[in-house]
Design a protein around this nucleic acid. Structure first.
Lengths: 336, 336
DNA sequence: TCGACAACTGTAAACGTTTTCAGTTGGAAG
DNA sequence: CTTCCAACTGAAAACGTTTACAGTTGTCGA
C-alpha cells in the first residue's frame, strides 16, 4: 500500500505538502500531487491519522438487539446522519445485559469518538461506566440515574400512554389489563404508570391479577397473555407496553381464539411491520425511530465537535412526539 | 489518558515489558505491571496498535438496508461470531445502490480488516471494486460476476423455489402467478427461473401477464399485486420472491378483499415476523439468516488469519438449506 | 537594487504501540 | 569460583500521519 512518502517522492515534494494539500490548503504543486495520488491509488492510513489526531471518525452504537426492527430503524437513522459527516458507526448488541454492554464498550471505546446507547440498565453503575468513558454520550430511549449528565433522546412516553388510556376510556372500557416491560427502564415505568394513573384519574382501578410486568420480550408477552387467558379477569381492553411483547401476546390470544376487538380491545406501544395486515389491524402508539436516530446523531456530532473545549453546549433532552394510530383492534366493549 | 509509558514508569520497568506482559509473555514484574495498569486504568490505544500491526480488528458489513429484518438478523449473526474473537463490526447500508456502496466502502476500508457484503449489484464493476480492496471479502446472498474470486454464503434458492412449485403443484394448482425481484441478482434470478422451470417440467406455462418482475421492495410487491388484481388472469396460486415484496402484495390483496387461500393460494420466499398471525398464516420458504451470518463470519475470520500468507485456503461456497414452512395460505384451488 | 512581506515549503518531532537486537541476570553444572 | 545457558530486559526503530517551526521563495514598492 502506497503511503504519503511514496506520493511525496513521486510528486517531487515533501510529505508535508502532500498532507497540506489533502487538508485543503493552498499548495503550489497541487496538480502533481493529485496525479501522484491517483497514480499510486494512495489512501491515507486511518490508524496513523487516528493516532496523530486522537480522532477516529467513528461512533459506537449499542442497542439491546440489532435484529429488533425498532432498534434496526434507530441504527439506520443514526447511520444516515452520521455518514454525511464522514463518520462510521460501529454496532453492537448488548442483549439487555449490563455485563455484555460494559464489555462491548470496553472493546469499542478506544476506537470511537462517541457513543450512542440504549442502555440495558438504568442504574447508577451504568451511569458511572459511561461517565468513565470520558467521551460524548447520548442516551436513547432510556436514561441512567436521576442526573445522567448526558444528552438524551426520548419519545413522549407519557403522552402516548395517556392517549392510549384516554382512547380506550372514550370507547367505554372500564375493565383493563396491562402488560408492561421492565420497571427499571424509563419506557417500561412511564408507560405503565401513566396508563394506570390516567385510569385512576377516571376513577378506575386495574385489578392486580390483570397487571403483568416482565421483560420487553416476545416470550414474556406470550406468557403474560396466556396467564390472562387462563385466569379470566373479565377485562375488555388490554394495553401492552411495546411491540415485541405485543406480538407475543397476539400469538397467545390468537391461539386461544380470543376475538379482537370483539371480546378484547387491544392496543400497544410501538408500531410494527404488518400491524395493519393482522386479522384485526392493530391500533398502536407509534414512534419515529428514524427521527430518533437523526436526533441522537445530531446531538452527538455537535458534541464531538466541541469536546474538550471549555464552552460545552448545555445538555439537551430531546423529546419526540408519538402518535395514536387508530386501526381496528379497539371497539366499544361488548355490552353484557 | 494513561499510556504505556505511564504504566512502565509506575511499575518501574520499560515499556517493552509492559507490552510483553500484555501479549501474554512471561515477565518477572508481572504483578507490579498488573497493578499499575489497574491503578491507572490503562487501556492500549487502538490506533497505535492498528498502526503498528496493520490490523484493526474490525470488519465492515455492508447490507442494502439495515432496517430490513432479514439483514438485521444477518448482521446479528455476524456480530455474534465476530465479537467472540475480539472483532468489531462497522455497519453501513447501501440502499441497493452501487454508487453509495462504493463510496461507503471507500470510507470504511482503511479502518477494517475484511468485508462482509450483500452487494447491491452483481455486475463486474462490483467485482472489480471489491478485488481492488485487496482484503478478505465474503459475499452473502448474492454474487458478483461468474468468477467472483471471493468466499460465498448463499441459501439454496433453487431447492426452495422447486419445493415451492412442487408443493403448489401437489395441491392441484395449474394456473400460477409470480412476483419476482431483480433479475440481475442471484436470488431474484434463481428463484424466478427455477420456479418457472419446475412448472414447465410439469408441462405448465405461466402466462406473461401473470409474471411481474421488479425491485425487492414492499412498494413493488404492492404495485405488482395490484396489477394482478386489476387485470384478472385466472391464477389460483401466487409465488412471491421475497418477504418485502410479499408484504406489499398482501397489502394489496387484503385491500382488494381477495380471500387467501380461498380465492388464491399464497407462498413466498423468506419468513417474516408475524407471518403466522395473519388472517391466513403464510406458508413460506424460510431461511436461516442468523446462521448465514455465522457462516460468513467464520469464513472471514479464517481468511483474515491467513491473509497475505502463501497458503490460502481455497475459496469456499457455503450453501445453507432452506425449508418449506407450511402454514395456511395454500390450499387446493377452488374447483370451478 | 534592496528590503519587507506574503505565501509557500521542508525538517523533524510527536502520537502510542510492537518487536528486533543486543544485552543482563541468575541458577545449575562443572 | 567459573562457565554456560535459559530466561528475561531495555533501547531504539518502525508504523504513517499532522503540524510547529524555521526556512525559502517571489513580488512589490521605494
Amino acid at each position: 500500500m502506497a503511503n504519503i512518502h511514496d506520493v511525496a517522492k513521486l510528486a517531487g515534494v515533501s510529505i508535508a505538502s502532500v498532507s497540506r494539500m489533502l487538508a485543503g490548503e493552498n499548495v503550489r504543486s497541487a496538480e502533481a500531487i493529485r496525479r501522484a495520488i491517483t497514480d499510486l491509488g494512495y489512501r491515507p492510513n486511518a490508524s496513523a491519522r487516528g493516532l496523530r489526531l486522537g480522532k477516529h471518525h467513528s461512533i459506537a452504537v449499542i442497542v439491546p438487539d440489532i435484529s429488533n426492527p425498532y432498534f434496526a430503524a434507530l441504527v439506520r437513522g443514526i447511520e444516515e446522519r452520521v455518514m454525511t459527516q464522514g463518520f462510521r458507526i460501529v454496532v453492537a448488541s448488548s442483549d439487555e445485559q449490563f455485563s455484555a454492554e460494559s464489555e462491548l464498550l470496553g472493546n469499542l471505546i478506544d476506537a470511537v469518538d462517541a457513543v450512542a446507547i440504549v442502555p440495558a440498565e438504568e442504574g447508577d453503575r451504568t451511569r458511572r461506566m459511561l461517565a468513565d468513558l470520558n467521551k460524548p454520550v447520548v442516551l436513547i430511549d432510556r436514561t441512567v440515574g436521576d442526573e445522567p449528565g448526558f444528552d438524551l433522546v426520548h419519545v413522549d412516553n407519557a403522552s402516548g400512554a395517556k392517549a392510549a388510556a384516554d382512547y380506550l376510556l372514550s370507547l367505554g372500557h372500564r375493565r383493563f389489563g396491562i402488560i408492561s416491560g421492565r420497571q427499571d427502564t424509563v419506557p417500561g415505568r412511564v408507560r405503565h404508570q401513566v396508563f394506570l394513573q390516567t385510569l385512576a384519574d377516571a376513577g378506575i382501578q386495574v385489578p392486580a391479577e390483570a397487571v403483568k410486568i416482565g421483560e420487553f420480550s416476545r416470550d414474556f408477552g406470550r406468557r403474560a397473555a396466556q396467564e390472562l387467558i387462563d385466569n379470566p379477569t373479565g377485562i375488555t381492553a388490554l394495553f401492552v407496553g411495546n411491540n415485541t411483547m405485543a406480538q407475543g401476546a397476539l400469538l397467545s390470544l390468537h391461539a386461544a381464539g380470543v376475538s379482537i376487538p370483539g371480546q378484547l380491545s387491544f392496543l400497544c406501544f410501538d408500531d410494527f411491520d404488518l400491524a395493519e395486515l393482522l386479522p384485526a389491524p392493530v391500533t398502536v402508539i407509534s414512534r419515529p425511530a428514524i427521527a430518533e436516530g437523526h436526533a441522537a446523531a445530531d446531538l452527538l456530532l455537535e458534541r464531538i465537535e466541541r469536546f474538550g473545549s471549555p464552552n460545552q453546549p448545555p445538555l439537551e433532552h430531546k423529546v419526540l412526539p408519538v402518535s395514536l394510530t387508530i386501526r381496528q383492534s379497539c371497539s366499544a366493549p361488548a355490552s353484557n
